[in-house]
Design a protein around this nucleic acid. Structure first.
Lengths: 117, 117
DNA sequence: CTTCTCTGTCAGTTGTCGCTAACGTTAGCG
DNA sequence: CGCTAACGTTAGCGACAACTGACAGAGAAG
């Protein structure tokens, strides 16, 4: 247990904060790609892409597989599922509030106008 | 439609990148709170919290309601649902790959060790 | 062994982010 | 009207993040 769940979540959110990294993730979600192929899809230097890959790997959002000198990357479904779970923590709470408001409206004989808005 | 979906998604992810903002969001997910009450829950200045609220509001992650001089904030479930949908775009693709790998393992007579890992 | 390809890593620079302190604004109270 | 309370906004500063260019290492090819 080197890292707490909070730290892991923080790494994931921070990795996803950059638009380019999200695009990279979308790229390797469908198929396994080499670092060079990924870099070729962007206007920035291969160095920059390599660093982005490093960030994504640190957050455990990517899995790496070596084939000769090439390194093939692929999105890690487990981490995405974890992120989804972390998001549900917020979502469930908000949903609870929404339900509570609707119920309060009904109990108070609220009009049909949708008083929440 | 002043903003594209990409820009909106970018705002949301960038807003969620900061741990404090996620904590704020968790705070106002369960109940509606005033800016001062939210600020009181942290060690930083009210100015800092106000700026965080501004960022969250720009991403449309918060709804604001005024009561005298006070401003009451609440998490916006719609945006969280949107984020969930944006995440599913990645998740579905990764899941497809995961399924494909498992099937490939079975077709190749892979051992029961769970080859995906 | 030499050369070429593919890739990660290391300084250095520029931009962006989060924080604080001072100020401006709006609403309630005497 | 004068005063206070609750906020948002601006300017300035330190810290971090993203990008570029130069360098180093591993594997394939001759």
């Amino acid at each position: 247990m080197g890292v707490t769940a909070e730290e892991a979540t923080d790494d994931v959110f921070r990795a996803l904060a950059d638009p380019r990294r999200r695009q990279i993730l979308r790229l390797v979600a469908q198929e396994e790609l080499a670092a060079g192929e990924i870099a070729g899809a962007f206007d920035v230097t291969r160095t920059a892409v390599s660093q982005h890959l490093s960030v994504l790997r640190s957050a455990d959002l990517l899995t790496e597989r070596r084939d000769g000198t090439r390194r093939l990357y692929r999105a890690n479904p487990d981490r995405i599922a974890d992120l989804r779970a972390a998001l549900d923590e917020l979502w469930a709470s908000s949903l609870d509030l929404g339900r509570r408001l609707v119920e309060a409206d009904r109990a108070a004989g609220g009009d049909a106008q949708g008083g929440v808005r």
